Structure formats: C-alpha cells, structure tokens
Measured scan of single mutants.
Amino acid sequence: RLRTTITPEQLEILYEKYLLDSNPTRKMLDHIAREVGLKKRVVQVWFQNTRARERK
C-alpha cells in the first residue's frame, strides 16, 4: 500500500485545525478532508497520530 504524501500547505491547514480542536467530530473530519483534499480516513489517522505524539 502506498503512503499518502501530505504537502506543506495541507500540513499547515491540519495544524491550524488541530490547535482549534484536537479531537474533531465526524462532521468536522469530513469538512477538513474536503478542505485539504485528502480522504477522511487519512485526516482521521493524522489527528490520531498527532495526539499520540503530543502525549509523549
């Protein structure tokens, strides 16, 4: 399986959204995914991984 490459522009948007809410609802994930042009599951995993990194 190929990994999804997230561009610096997409990362910037994702981090902005993360600062507003680190645990977004399904509806918010849909909205964020459309905004950055990624699949909802990719955005969901990015948020999970970012939360895990923050806990370390």
Rank of each mutant, 00 (worst) to 15 (best):
7 T>K: 03
39 K>F: 01
46 W>D: 03
2 L>R: 08
3 R>E: 14
53 R>V: 11
2 L>V: 11
24 P>F: 04
12 E>F: 13
22 S>V: 04
56 K>R: 02
12 E>S: 12
34 R>A: 14
36 V>T: 11
52 A>P: 02
10 Q>E: 02
26 R>T: 15
49 N>W: 04
20 L>N: 09
22 S>C: 10
31 H>G: 11
50 T>R: 13
26 R>E: 14
23 N>L: 07
45 V>R: 05
4 T>G: 10
7 T>I: 02
30 D>C: 04
12 E>H: 05
6 I>G: 06
35 E>F: 03
54 E>N: 10
10 Q>V: 06
15 Y>M: 10
31 H>W: 09
56 K>M: 11
25 T>V: 03
43 V>C: 03
30 D>F: 05
51 R>E: 08
26 R>H: 11
53 R>G: 12
11 L>D: 13
28 M>Q: 10
24 P>W: 09
35 E>G: 06
55 R>Y: 12
4 T>H: 08
6 I>E: 04
12 E>M: 10
20 L>Y: 15
49 N>S: 11
33 A>L: 02
26 R>V: 14
20 L>S: 07
35 E>N: 05
33 A>C: 11
47 F>L: 02
48 Q>S: 11
7 T>L: 07
49 N>H: 04
55 R>K: 11
31 H>C: 12
32 I>M: 05
33 A>Q: 02
17 K>Y: 15
52 A>R: 05
14 L>T: 00
21 D>F: 06
48 Q>C: 06
21 D>K: 02
40 K>I: 13
33 A>E: 05
9 E>V: 08
52 A>V: 05
54 E>A: 04
21 D>H: 02
6 I>A: 06
34 R>W: 08
14 L>D: 02
45 V>Q: 03
40 K>S: 14
29 L>G: 00
15 Y>L: 12
3 R>V: 13
52 A>K: 10
19 L>K: 08
21 D>Y: 04
28 M>H: 06
52 A>Y: 01
25 T>N: 08
56 K>Q: 03
10 Q>W: 02
15 Y>V: 07
46 W>E: 03
50 T>D: 00
14 L>F: 02
54 E>T: 02
52 A>D: 15
43 V>G: 00
29 L>I: 11
37 G>P: 01
11 L>E: 13
38 L>D: 02
20 L>I: 10
27 K>I: 06
46 W>Q: 00
18 Y>I: 06
55 R>H: 10
49 N>V: 09
13 I>W: 06
27 K>H: 13
10 Q>M: 05
22 S>Q: 06
32 I>T: 04
29 L>N: 05
9 E>R: 11
6 I>N: 02
25 T>D: 07
41 R>L: 13
2 L>K: 14
18 Y>V: 01
53 R>C: 12
18 Y>Q: 01
22 S>N: 04
27 K>L: 11
30 D>I: 10
10 Q>H: 04
40 K>Y: 15
54 E>V: 03
29 L>T: 07
22 S>R: 05
28 M>T: 11
56 K>P: 09
11 L>H: 11
21 D>S: 04
44 Q>M: 08
15 Y>Q: 13
6 I>W: 04
35 E>R: 02
31 H>N: 05
37 G>E: 04
45 V>G: 07
4 T>M: 11
52 A>L: 07
1 R>T: 10
36 V>I: 05
49 N>I: 13
38 L>E: 04
3 R>Q: 15
54 E>Y: 02
4 T>N: 04
24 P>E: 00
12 E>A: 12
10 Q>A: 05
51 R>Y: 07
41 R>E: 15
41 R>C: 12
44 Q>I: 06
14 L>K: 00
50 T>Q: 13
15 Y>F: 07
1 R>G: 15
9 E>Q: 08
47 F>S: 01
29 L>S: 04
2 L>E: 15
45 V>A: 06
39 K>Q: 12
7 T>P: 08
49 N>L: 06
46 W>V: 02
48 Q>Y: 08
2 L>F: 12
35 E>P: 00
54 E>W: 05
38 L>H: 00
20 L>G: 09
23 N>M: 09
4 T>Q: 09
53 R>H: 13
34 R>Q: 13
42 V>Y: 03
28 M>F: 03
24 P>L: 03
38 L>Y: 01
27 K>Y: 08
2 L>D: 15
31 H>S: 14
8 P>R: 06
19 L>H: 06
8 P>Q: 07
42 V>H: 10
8 P>H: 04
13 I>D: 03
56 K>N: 05
24 P>C: 01
49 N>P: 02
40 K>L: 15
32 I>F: 05
17 K>F: 03
55 R>N: 15
50 T>L: 08
51 R>W: 12
19 L>D: 09
20 L>W: 09
7 T>Q: 06
20 L>E: 09
35 E>Y: 04
6 I>F: 08
46 W>S: 00
7 T>M: 05
46 W>L: 00
50 T>F: 10
31 H>I: 14
50 T>K: 12
20 L>A: 09
24 P>R: 00
27 K>P: 13
48 Q>H: 08
2 L>M: 12
14 L>G: 01
29 L>K: 03
3 R>W: 08
36 V>F: 03
29 L>P: 02
40 K>A: 14
38 L>K: 06
15 Y>C: 10
34 R>M: 10
11 L>T: 14
35 E>S: 08
53 R>N: 12
19 L>R: 09
28 M>D: 14
52 A>W: 05
21 D>R: 01
26 R>D: 15
21 D>E: 13
11 L>A: 10
53 R>D: 14
13 I>L: 09
32 I>S: 00
44 Q>T: 10
18 Y>D: 00
17 K>T: 09
38 L>A: 03
25 T>A: 05
29 L>C: 07
23 N>H: 06
39 K>G: 13
1 R>I: 14
15 Y>R: 14
19 L>M: 09
36 V>W: 03
28 M>K: 03
54 E>H: 02
47 F>A: 00
42 V>R: 04
15 Y>A: 09
20 L>M: 09
3 R>A: 13
12 E>P: 02
39 K>L: 13
33 A>R: 03
41 R>G: 15
46 W>R: 01
36 V>E: 02
43 V>A: 04
42 V>F: 11
36 V>N: 04
34 R>T: 11
29 L>Q: 09
37 G>T: 00
13 I>K: 14
3 R>D: 15
19 L>E: 08
25 T>S: 10
30 D>L: 06
51 R>T: 06
4 T>D: 15
15 Y>K: 13
29 L>D: 02
4 T>I: 09
5 T>Y: 06
13 I>F: 10
43 V>R: 00
37 G>F: 03
12 E>V: 10
52 A>S: 07
56 K>H: 03
8 P>E: 14
32 I>Q: 00
37 G>S: 05
6 I>C: 03
3 R>N: 15
37 G>V: 02
41 R>M: 12
18 Y>W: 05
8 P>V: 14
49 N>M: 12
24 P>G: 01
21 D>G: 04
9 E>D: 12
41 R>T: 14
1 R>A: 15
46 W>K: 00
38 L>V: 08
8 P>T: 04
5 T>K: 05
9 E>F: 05
17 K>G: 03
37 G>I: 01
35 E>Q: 06
17 K>E: 10
39 K>T: 15
18 Y>N: 03
4 T>L: 08
26 R>K: 13
17 K>V: 03
42 V>D: 14
18 Y>R: 02
27 K>F: 06
42 V>L: 09
42 V>S: 05
52 A>Q: 11
27 K>C: 09
50 T>Y: 09
21 D>P: 01
8 P>F: 11
40 K>R: 12
11 L>Y: 08
22 S>P: 05
7 T>C: 06
53 R>W: 05
5 T>L: 06
29 L>H: 00
44 Q>R: 07
44 Q>G: 11
37 G>R: 05
